[in-house]
């Protein structure tokens, strides 16, 4: 039969089916927003098809939060970490975009470390305002601040990508938004100065670096100055947390993305009296929590960003 003919027209039926499977899986990734659930040959094939660098973002774990919006934020963090451990392809490392703890207590940081370290991945942290509640932000600095500058900013390189972790949750001014401050901006300018414009840049910070909804304080006062130092680069990806929901914006070469929390959802801008924790039906909570996977493929200017909920 013609259908079983593996030669002749240049592509075998099996090959066509394989391609369809791969395409199908890819479509599932981008539309359903989930990583493939089935294990086996397709996932391995996909893994081989997507070389380069894959890293994960988790955010806003708020360990210690126990209010009605999620009485067990530690439990949902544990679920998120379980899902990361079950990924068919191990990510290179993880970034945490802040609000590790809810109230900056030693026991909350201990609990967070105990769960997150189960991934056995390197984790690059930036602080959220909830991690800086103790005097002089001592606890965060001792645990996560090694090798960083100022209040905890730093940069590193992986697979040709330059990563920059910024702190925009300190020295906030009355009536204002998130704040980077002159010292950090000066450091940033210097940090990127000698680099080739073709170097892909990933910036991560807790509060959105762009003016997302200033009425609720969702933005960074001097974020535009930081972005000005980065505008000559061909690929800039800005990853934030803080607002406990996915928001994305593309502006020229810059892609902005905010991740879900693993603890509790917050309302969409302007849809509630305040940005406080949003209580949803118990069955719906896990559809609004999750993590983000970011894939960088050499030669592609835009990084693939895939958000995965704890439950679809």
């Amino acid at each position: 039969m013609a259908l079983n003919n593996d030669s002749g027209d240049g592509i075998s039926r099996r090959r066509v089916l394989e391609c369809m499977s791969w395409t199908g899986t890819g479509v599932l990734w981008s539309i359903a927003g989930g990583v493939p659930r089935s294990l086996g040959i397709i996932d391995e094939a996909v893994a081989q098809e997507r070389p380069g660098l894959t890293f994960l973002q988790i955010s806003d774990s708020h360990v210690g939060f126990d209010k009605p919006a999620n009485p067990n934020a530690l439990g949902t963090l544990e679920e998120a970490i379980g899902r990361i451990n079950a990924l068919p392809v191990k990510p290179a490392f993880m970034i945490h975009t802040g609000d590790i703890s809810h109230l900056s207590t030693p026991s909350q940081f201990d609990d967070a470390d105990r769960i997150i370290s189960q991934t056995r991945l390197d984790v690059h942290y930036v602080p959220g305002e909830h991690d800086f509640l103790d005097e002089q932000q001592k606890l965060y600095r001792e645990r996560y601040g090694r090798g960083s500058k100022g209040a905890g900013w730093y940069s590193f390189d992986a697979n040709g990508v330059h990563f920059i972790g910024l702190v925009n949750v300190i020295d906030l001014k009355a009536g204002g938004l998130g704040n980077l401050g002159a010292a950090q901006l000066e450091w940033l300018e210097d940090d990127v100065k000698g680099r080739s414009a073709s170097t892909p840049i990933v910036v991560f910070a807790h509060m959105p670096l762009w003016s997302l909804y200033p009425e609720w304080g969702w933005g960074t006062e001097d974020g535009a100055r930081a972005l000005a130092y980065l505008k000559r680069f061909g690929s800039v990806t800005v990853l934030n947390g803080h607002i406990h929901q996915i928001m994305q914006k593309v502006e020229g070469n810059v892609t902005f993305h905010t991740a879900r929390s693993t603890a509790f959802p917050q309302p969409a801008p302007g849809t509630a009296p305040s940005p406080g924790p949003m209580k949803v039906a118990d069955g719906k909570l896990r559809t609004m929590l999750g993590t983000t996977s970011i894939n960088f493929k050499r030669g592609e200017s835009r990084l693939a960003i895939i958000d995965t909920a704890l439950q679809n």
Binding site: E129, L172, K173, A174, G175, L177, E215, G217
Partner: peptide, 9 residues
């Protein structure tokens, strides 16, 4: 005048 240093708005 005062504010919340965590949510300065």
């Amino acid at each position: 005048e005062y504010f919340c240093s965590l949510h300065p708005h």
